[in-house]
Amino acid sequence: MALLEVRNLDVRFGLRSGEVQALRDINFSLERGERLGVVGESGAGKSVLGFSILNLLSQPGYIAGGEILFEGQNLAAMSPKQLRSIRGNRISMIFQDPMMTLNPVLTIGQQMVECLLAHRKISRKDARRIALQKLKQVQIPSPETRIDQYPHELSGGMRQRIVIAIGLLMDPDIIIADEPTTALDVTIQAEIMDLMLELCERNSVALILITHDLGIVSQVTRRAMVMYAGRIIEQGPTREIINDAQHPYTQGLMNALPQMAIPGQRLNQIRGSMPPLQNIPTGCAFNPRCDYVLDVCHRELPGFTRSGGCKVACHMVAQMKLEEEAAVHALEVK
């Protein structure tokens, strides 16, 4: 059994102007110790996916259907109390902006100890000892003084280390990291990323890495999913997705990388922009921007086609596969 299995997840926002489908038909699984990358443009639903795994969607978002099975238990149907025993304990989350994640009026120590006390029956003194130990693990210099300081007394990189320390406090099974390095200085990004990976590796923590940085995904993760307008449009081994993207959108993302540009030429980009969730085109959501658009793309939502180790939601790929098979069949008949 997979550690985490998401089945047919459907997330909606009940807005005054009507229901908006933020995530549709999300299916994926995560094994113990695995690293999974979630890639996509802003607004593709990556963060919503992260929050819905912990059933932490804020109003007016809600899980409208599907299952989130963590060790076989459905998080989408759990009581708030049961959920609390999982959040921060078995599955923890690291947020994007360390400047905003820590409470400005509580000390680092208070914010760490409270998490330990919420999940374990231990004394305050023991909790503080564990907190200090975790601060050492994330290489905070002189943790004994830092633990009694307030967030504003620390730098951004230091704060993200503390957020990571809080994420690892209970030795969770899964960490969901939502753009953990985006808000940081480029020089610190690599440092923080390495630290996080090392700690995940050492404790065999599974990592769901939400990012728009394809470089990080290719270096760090073994499997990846590409999201577009609330749907997973391609998922499979990271190497295959990076080297041999099937979906026209993923191909577009790859071509848009600055490394792919020829010096002196304009950078490549995908024309148009992602549709707002209230106004997703019928058929394939990518059809207005796609170079290979077919008639069927305007009418029908594409199902998944297997291609190598990947699953791709694209009519064009499906048709190519059919033609390929027909050709192979014809050869065999001959």
Partner: peptide, 17 residues
């Protein structure tokens, strides 16, 4: 609505706290 309150929820703290 702030991030630190969301983070507090993600830590599994009680609503009262």
């Amino acid at each position: 609505q702030s991030e630190y309150v969301k983070f507090a929820w993600a830590k599994g703290l009680s609503p009262r706290r």
